[in-house]
Amino acid sequence: MKFNTILTIILLAACTSLSMAQDRYLTRSGSVKFFSTAPLEDIEAHTNKALSIIDIKKGEVAVDILIKSFEFEKKLMQEHFNENYMESDKYSKATFKGNYGSNENIANMVDGTYDVVAKGDLTIHGVKKAIETPVTITVSGGKLSANMVFMANVKEFGIKIPKVVVRNIAEEVEVTASFEYEPYK
């Protein structure tokens, strides 16, 4: 009896862990870039070190980015971005936590491209804002990827742009994200 109980527990644990592995997908090398176009100059930065987890059964998604991981073409621009605007020593991460609702095809990993809308909280510079953005999720041969483009208003996140550089930095910044997920074991 005792042996049977232990065996049942082990089997249940194994099944749960197997089901969790199929539900959750992870990437530690998500690509995120932003682009600002202003009268005096265009500014672009990117990172390939975003962390994202997606739960296909619950339709939930989370993204974490370390602000200092953004790379700029010019070193000076990168330093100003971290020190003067993003205050990244104080607000080190940007995060998104939300969901795209239930989608049976994605949940069952049926090959195809699916347009969904992700709703959730985007936190940048310590300021949390509710956002809604279209996301394209692609399932292909057991692999999962997600792509999205949305606009972020720097003022809404409490990022102050000094008047002297107001013609260099746009108020609205285009954010493009691309994630190639692997099963989370």
Binding site: K49, D64, L66, K68, S92
Partner: peptide
């Protein structure tokens, strides 16, 4: 600069 499952 911090930890995101990997330390960066």
């Amino acid at each position: 600069i911090g930890y995101l499952l990997d330390v960066l």
